[in-house]
């Protein structure tokens, strides 16, 4: 079992574009402050921003969790539904169910989930109508 050194939880509201990126921005700042290798910070920054935007656009709200282990950063993005109908389809590049309002803001190009997976060393997704749970692990060394 890995020893958890530090855990942060951030609430993310549905449709809250005013605060879009606030959680991932704090995650990024904290990792920079504790001098995590810049290339690791970059991976976490990209993946956590995508995950946060997904909660804002597609879900009924949820939370982002940052966990710091000695050898790993883990991001958890958990929302309160409505869930992804076809996870395999959502994982294919270019697929998007974003609303027109979100698209007008420049979101919803359909690269979110595949991009998150690309930047993580270990990626897990489970989804049902009660919510979608992402686990994004990025190794430090």
């Amino acid at each position: 079992m890995r020893e958890l050194i530090k855990r942060y939880v951030f609430q993310v509201q549905a449709n809250d574009f005013d605060n879009a990126g606030a959680a991932s921005s704090t995650i990024k700042r904290n990792l920079k402050t504790i001098a995590i290798n810049p290339s690791i910070v970059r991976k976490v920054a990209v993946a956590s921003y995508e995950a946060e935007i997904n909660i804002i656009i597609h879900s009924n709200g949820g939370e982002m969790v940052l966990e710091i282990y000695e050898d790993m950063i883990s991001i958890k993005a958990n929302d309160k539904g409505p869930g992804i109908q076809d996870v395999d389809l959502a994982m294919s590049e270019g697929f998007s169910t974003a609303s027109n309002a979100a698209r007008e803001l420049g979101f919803g190009a359909g690269m979110g989930l595949p991009n998150i997976k690309k930047y993580s060393d270990n990626f897990k997704i489970t989804s049902n109508e009660k919510g979608t749970r992402l686990t994004i692990d990025i190794m430090i060394e």
Partner: peptide, 12 residues
């Protein structure tokens, strides 16, 4: 260079 644990302690 400082260790991860020291850095987190300082951040706290």
């Amino acid at each position: 260079h400082t260790s991860l644990k020291e850095a987190i302690k300082k951040l706290e």
